Amino acid sequence: MLNLSKIQAITLDLDDTLWPVWPTIARAEVVLQDWLALHAPQTALFCAEPGMKQAIRAEIHQRHVDQHHDLSFLRREAIRESLLRAGDAPHLADAAFEVFFTERQNVKLYDGVPQALARLAARYPLVSLSNGNADVFRTEAGPYFQAAVSARTFGVAKPDVRIFHAAAAQLNLPAEAVLHLGDDAMTDVMGAMNAGMQAAWVNTQGHAWPHDSAQPLTVSHLADLCDHLLS
């Protein structure tokens, strides 16, 4: 299903492709709440109210529709809004966000992913391509990557074809020479194919293929794709 002869490099999504994202976010939320309890106790109490954090985030997303590609900005502004409403100093938002962001990089790779990345990196240049705000070079996956492109820094998010073309440009390659791997059927798979790349679906969650188009090469783990690419 892939034309292996054309593939000269690989781009990879991060969250839910290389590691499960929600346990990471949950840990970062706990670390942030603990920090607020020490430095902004009124905000810690405010954020502990049921549904309050979700309501603040929804309001910030609505207020900043032009920043939806930048999850770091949205998170920082949600913290700032919480500080303001609780009566704590809003300038604490930057320090609070850094506490959250540092823990957000403390990801736990799926079993076998380091070995799979090592195999792929020995054959192909790898570039991370993410809508999230993880910094791959601050994770244990970092040594296997040559470059990173993120929606936050580029200014648009997948499935916009421009971000895929930007990743190919990092490699000095045309889009058709790049294979993209990711867990999201729309933003990763369809986005990459619309940009002229080949794509494979790393379906770690066991979802059904949601589109009318033919299902691409699908694996449940990155190691399975290594076997297909490197056999």
Rank of each mutant, 00 (worst) to 15 (best):
K6N: 09
I7S: 04
I10W: 00
L12G: 01
L12E: 00
T24M: 11
A26N: 12
A26P: 14
Q33L: 10
D34W: 05
A37D: 06
A37M: 10
A40C: 11
A40G: 08
A40L: 15
P41N: 12
Q42R: 14
A44Q: 03
C47A: 14
A48D: 07
Q54T: 01
A55I: 07
R57N: 05
A58C: 11
E59K: 15
Q67M: 15
S72D: 07
F73D: 06
R80C: 06
P90L: 06
D94N: 10
A95S: 09
F97I: 00
E98K: 01
F100R: 02
R104F: 13
Y110V: 08
D111H: 11
A116V: 11
A116S: 14
L117T: 06
R123V: 10
G132A: 04
A134N: 02
F145M: 09
A148T: 13
T153K: 12
R162S: 12
F164A: 07
A169I: 08
Q170R: 12
L171V: 07
N172L: 11
A175Q: 06
A175E: 03
D183A: 12
D183F: 03
A185Y: 09
M186L: 15
G191F: 13
M197C: 11
A199K: 12
A199C: 14
A199M: 14
A200I: 08
W201G: 03
A208Q: 13
A208G: 08
H211M: 15
D212H: 15
P216Y: 09
L217K: 05
V219L: 09
L222R: 04
D224L: 02
L225C: 15
C226L: 04
L229C: 02
